[in-house]
Design a protein around this nucleic acid. Structure first.
Length: 230
DNA sequence: GCGACAG
DNA sequence: ATCTTGTCGC
């Protein structure tokens, strides 16, 4: 496990953070389809917090996209770098997530984030931000619709409904299990929305949430507990 | 102005 | 995110 310093130039105020987003948003690449589902590596990243102790733990779990077997794992711990502010989640998660990806012994391939990419007030959520900073193809799979609206997808797994910001489709509500609450998929960087949904379905053979995020969630919680006082 | 709001 | 027991169902 690695320990993470907060970058010296990390934003301190919401105003600074929004300015960073506005400066980087033009770098998002939207005209690539991304890797085909079921090939290469797919990596889940997630973060757990203990705000009382000011500790954050991140985990990355690399899966073989075809078998969904675990290929590699890494964890990293650090200090909380930003408070939770809707729309500025990336500033809370990124330092530790970048470090944990660096700590992996192999290329991550497609990165699946817990949260949003383009579906964001300034079209630059966590998944897009991570993609721009690393150059990696990324998607966001969120558990809640945030501020966006959508119709309820049909009951069968695989059904979708547009995630809307006004009349703009910023993502998709995707049913990953029959008659179970959908997940909310959006493009991060260098992946099409259709492909992002296809990946999400490939990663949900048995549960509502992708195997990538389930594995990463379990691992970062374990890592956080591992930092508890002896 | 007030409420809602990824994790 | 996190606080939290048992319980219903595949």
């Amino acid at each position: 496990m690695t320990t993470v310093p907060i970058p010296g130039d990390w934003p301190t105020t919401e105003e600074q953070a929004r300015a960073v987003q506005d400066g980087l948003r033009t770098r998002v690449v939207l005209d690539e389809p991304g890797p085909p589902p079921g090939t290469g590596h797919v990596t889940g990243v997630d973060v757990a917090y203990d705000d009382e102790r000011d500790v954050v733990a991140a985990a990355a779990v690399v899966l073989d996209a075809e078998s969904l077997d675990v290929v590699a794992e890494a964890t990293a711990v650090g200090r909380v770098s930003f408070p939770y502010v809707p729309g500025l989640l990336a500033f809370r998660e990124l330092p530790t997530v970048l470090a944990v990806l660096d700590a992996l012994p192999c290329p991550p391939g497609l990165v699946v984030c817990d949260g949003y990419g383009l579906a964001h007030p300034r079209r630059f959520g966590l998944a897009s931000h991570l993609g721009v900073l690393t150059g990696l193809p990324t998607i966001g799979v969120a558990k809640n619709p945030f501020t966006f609206t959508h119709d309820d997808p049909d009951a069968p797994r695989g059904s979708t409904a547009p995630l809307l910001a006004g009349d703009e489709e910023v993502g998709r509500a995707l049913r990953t299990r029959d008659a179970v609450k959908p997940v909310f998929v959006s493009v991060g960087h260098r992946v099409s929305l259709d492909n992002a949904c296809a990946h999400t379905l490939a990663l949900t053979p048995a549960h509502r949430l992708p195997e990538t995020t389930r594995r990463a969630d379990a691992l970062c919680r374990r890592a956080l507990r591992g930092t508890a006082p002896a």
